[in-house]
Design a binder for these strands. Structure first.
Lengths: 245, 245
DNA sequence: CCCTTCTATGAATCGTGCT
DNA sequence: CAGCACGATTCATAGAAGG
C-alpha cells in the first residue's frame, strides 16, 4: 500500500477495509457525483468532457469513478458509505457534497447504510457557473449530512450556519476540476469535535485535509488518481508556507 | 363551487378536475410539507403545535393536510401533481417549495407523475433561523422545479438566479404561518412566460397570486381553509393600495 | 414486574429587528 | 438602548403501553 503520512494512494474500497473500527471522529468528503447526464450514454463520457466547457484543451487530469451508470454508482456509494460507517466512532458526523441530481439517491443510501440523515446544507456559489435563459441557475451545491447514531448531547462545537457563500475558485487556485474553496471546507469541518480525527476517502487535491490541519484536526485521506495524489501530497508538505492555496 | 374572481375555495383535488386541459402556463406553489416529525404521531400534531415554539397563544389559523403520514402525503402529492400536469400546457414550468426531509420524495413523485425534473433552487432565509449547537442550521428551504416536457427553446424569460436570499418575515407582515416574502415569489414567477396564466393550488394567504399580478401575470388560486381564503381574497381586493403587504 | 418501545410535552440554541 | 419576541426545530425525558 502506498502512503505518505496520512495520505493513501489507492481505491477507497480497498484502503478503507484496512482501517480499524471506530477510529474516526468525522467523515467529510466530496465523492464523484457521476451526474453529468440523466442517460447512460451521457454518463459514460469522461468527466473532463462533461464538466468542462466546450472546445478547450484538457486542463484537469481525469478522475475515475465518474463513468458509472446510476446502478453502478448506487452500489459503489452504498459500499463506501457502509465502510465509512464502520470506521466512524459512534456519534461521528458525516458530511458529503452532492449535486441536485444525485441528492435523493444519496439521502436514501445514507439511510440504507445505517447513518442517520440530519439535514441538507447549501454551498451557494454566489454566481451561476453557466446561467441559462429561462431556467433557474445551478448555483448551489448540496451538502448532505448526518451522524452515526445520535450526535452526542454535549459537543464542543458551536452553532453552525446552513448556507455557505463562497465563490468558485479559478483554475490555478483550485487544483482539482471540482475543487472546493479552502474556507468552505474549514467552515464545514467545524462540525467535527476539536482535535478529532477526520477522514476524506476521496481527497482529490487535498483541500479537506489542508482545512482540517488548519483547524488543528488530524486528517486522513485517500486518493485514487496518481496525479491528484501527488498534488495533494505536495500541498500538505508545503502547508507551512504562508500562501493559502 | 365557491369562488371569487380567480380564487377558489375548496380542496385542490376536487377543484383541479373542473379545470380544462392545458390551460396554464406555469404552476407555482407551496404545498403543506407534512414534515414535522419522522414518526406518525409526531406528524399528527397540528402545524401550529409542531412549528411554533412553546408557550405562545395560537396566532395562525390551522391549515389542513399537515397531519398526514408519509404514505398519505405521497399518494396525495401524486394526485395533485398529476392533475396539475393535465391542466398545464406543454412546456409549462412547475415550481414547488419543499423542506429538506421531503425533498427526495417530491423529486421522485414529480418524475412519477410525468413531469421533467430540471433542478433544485434554494431559498436562503439568511441568519434568522433557530441555531442549534453542533449542527448545521436548517436555514434553507428548497424549491424543486421542472417542466411538462421540454421547456421551449425560445422563451421570453431572462436568466434567473439559483439561490434567493430573503429574510423570513415577521408575523403581521406575513399572514400565514409559513407565508413567503412577496419579493421571493416575484423572483420565482419570472420563470413564467410574460403575460401567462399561473396556477397556485395551495394559495394560503395569496402571496403567489399577488406577486403574479404585480408581474402582469394572470393568476388562479385554490385554498381549502376558509380563514386563509378570506385573507387571500381581501389581499387581492386591496391590491390597488400602495402598501405592499 | 422489568424491560423495551412508543408518544406527548416542553426546554433551548442566538442573531436580528421591533418596541 | 436595553429588553424581548421569534424562528415550516430538534432533542431529551417522563410517562404510558405492551410483552
Amino acid at each position: 500500500m502506498v502512503k505518505e503520512g496520512d495520505l493513501y494512494w489507492g481505491d477507497a474500497l480497498e484502503i478503507l477495509p484496512t482501517f480499524p473500527d471506530a477510529s474516526f471522529d468525522a467523515i467529510v468528503t466530496d465523492p464523484p457525483y457521476c451526474s453529468g447526464g440523466m442517460t447512460m450514454s451521457e454518463r459514460a463520457r469522461p468527466a473532463s468532457v462533461k464538466y468542462v466547457q466546450s472546445r478547450q484543451q484538457l486542463r484537469w487530469p481525469e478522475f475515475e469513478s465518474e463513468s458509472m451508470d446510476q446502478n453502478a454508482w448506487m452500489t459503489w456509494t452504498y459500499r463506501w458509505l457502509k465502510e465509512c460507517k464502520r470506521v466512524a466512532k459512534d456519534g461521528a458526523p458525516i458530511v458529503i457534497f452532492i449535486d441536485w441530481r444525485q441528492l435523493p439517491l444519496l439521502t436514501t443510501l445514507l439511510q440504507w447504510t445505517g447513518w442517520r440523515w440530519l439535514g441538507v446544507a447549501v454551498w451557494d456559489k454566489t454566481e451561476a457557473c453557466r446561467p441559462q435563459m429561462g431556467r433557474f441557475a445551478a448555483q448551489a451545491e448540496f451538502i448532505v449530512w448526518g451522524a452515526k447514531g445520535k450526535l452526542p448531547a454535549k459537543r464542543h462545537v458551536g452553532t453552525l450556519p446552513g448556507v455557505f457563500r463562497y465563490r468558485v475558485e479559478v483554475p490555478g487556485v483550485k487544483l482539482h476540476m471540482t475543487g472546493k474553496p479552502l474556507g468552505l471546507m474549514e467552515d464545514l469541518l467545524r462540525i467535527a469535535e476539536p482535535g478529532g480525527r477526520v477522514l476524506d476517502p476521496f481527497a482529490g487535491s487535498g483541500t479537506t485535509l489542508l482545512a482540517a490541519r488548519n483547524l488543528g484536526l488530524q486528517a486522513v485521506g485517500i486518493e485514487a488518481s496518481p496525479q491528484y495524489y501527488q498534488i495533494a501530497k505536495g500541498r500538505l508538505q508545503r502547508r507551512e508556507e504562508t500562501i493559502r492555496l
